[in-house]
Amino acid sequence: MPSHFTEVQQQFMAHIRDPNHNKKPINIEERRMAIYRDLFFNNVEGFVSSAFPVLKSLYTKSGWQNLIRLFFSQHNCKSPYFLDIAGEFLEFLATSYSKQSTDPDFMLELAHYEWVELDVSVAQAQEHEAALQTNQVTNAGLLLSCLARNLSYTYPVHTISKGYQPESPLTEPCYFVVYRDSDDEVQFLSTNAMTALLLSIIEAQPGINLNLLCQEVARHAPQFSQEQLYQGALNTLSAMAERGVIVTKS
C-alpha cells in the first residue's frame, strides 16, 4: 500500500503537470502551489523555446503556450536532465502529438533541424575515433564521426521563418551535414544526394573502405562508371575528412 506521503507526492506532481484536471493536495495553500506550477512550467517552456526559436516564432504566444502545456502534461520524459528536454519535446511531436490545423505541415522537420544543433553541440567524442588525413581516405576504414549527422528533409527547413512558410514539399529533398568542428563550433553544410548516399552507406557499414564503398554506390547509381564513382567519392570524402565529418578507427 502506498504511504500517505507517496500519495501526496503523486497528487502534487499530477496537479503541477495538469492543474485543470487534477486537484492540488488539500494541505498545500494555493499561493505556494501557484509558485510551484509556474516554476516547473516556465523552466520547461524556457528550455523548449531556446531550442526551437524558429518554430516558436510561427505561433502566437497563446498557441505556443498551449503546445508546451500539452507536452508538459502528456509526455513522460525518460531523462531527468534539463539538457534532454528538447529531445523529449521532439519525441513528443513525433510519436504522440496529434497535429492541429494551425500547425504547419513542416512542423516535425523544422523541429528536428533545430534540435540537431543542440544534439551535435553536446555529443560526446568517442575514443575509438581518430582524425582521418586526406591521404588516408583511399585505404583507411571509414567512419561517420559521432559529432556529425547526415540529414535530408522534404522541406527547405534552413530557409523557413515567420515570413516564409512553404506550403508544399520540395520536388527533391534538401541534404545537410551538421557537424562540430575542431573549435567545437556547430557547422551546417549543404550537400547533395550523392554525398548523402556516401555518408549513409558509411554510417550503415562503419569501417568500410573506399573500394567497397564505391561498389555499394554503384548499385544505386549504375549510370556512372567505377572510375567516375571512385574519383567523385575520393574528392567528396577528402573534403569531409578535412572537416572531421569522416574519421577512422584509432
Rank of each mutant, 00 (worst) to 15 (best):
H4G: 02
V8H: 00
Q11Y: 08
A14K: 05
N20M: 07
P25R: 10
R31A: 13
Y36S: 10
L39V: 07
F40W: 10
N42I: 03
S50L: 11
F52T: 13
P53C: 12
L55E: 03
F72C: 02
S73A: 15
Q74E: 12
K78N: 13
K78D: 12
I85C: 04
L93Y: 03
Y97A: 12
S98F: 08
K99R: 15
K99M: 08
T102A: 13
D105N: 11
D105Y: 03
L108Y: 14
L110F: 12
H112Y: 09
Y113K: 05
E117L: 09
D119V: 01
H128Y: 14
H128S: 06
A131Y: 08
Q136L: 03
T138A: 15
R149F: 07
P156E: 11
V157M: 07
H158K: 07
T159M: 06
I160R: 04
P169W: 01
T171C: 10
F176L: 12
Y179W: 10
Y179D: 00
Y179C: 06
R180C: 12
S182R: 08
D184W: 10
D184N: 13
V186I: 15
L189Y: 06
S190H: 09
S190W: 02
A193W: 03
L198W: 11
L199S: 09
I202Q: 07
I208V: 15
N211S: 09
Q215P: 05
P222E: 12
Q226W: 02
L234P: 02
N235H: 05
S238L: 01
A239K: 15
A239Q: 14
A239H: 11
G244E: 03
K249Y: 14
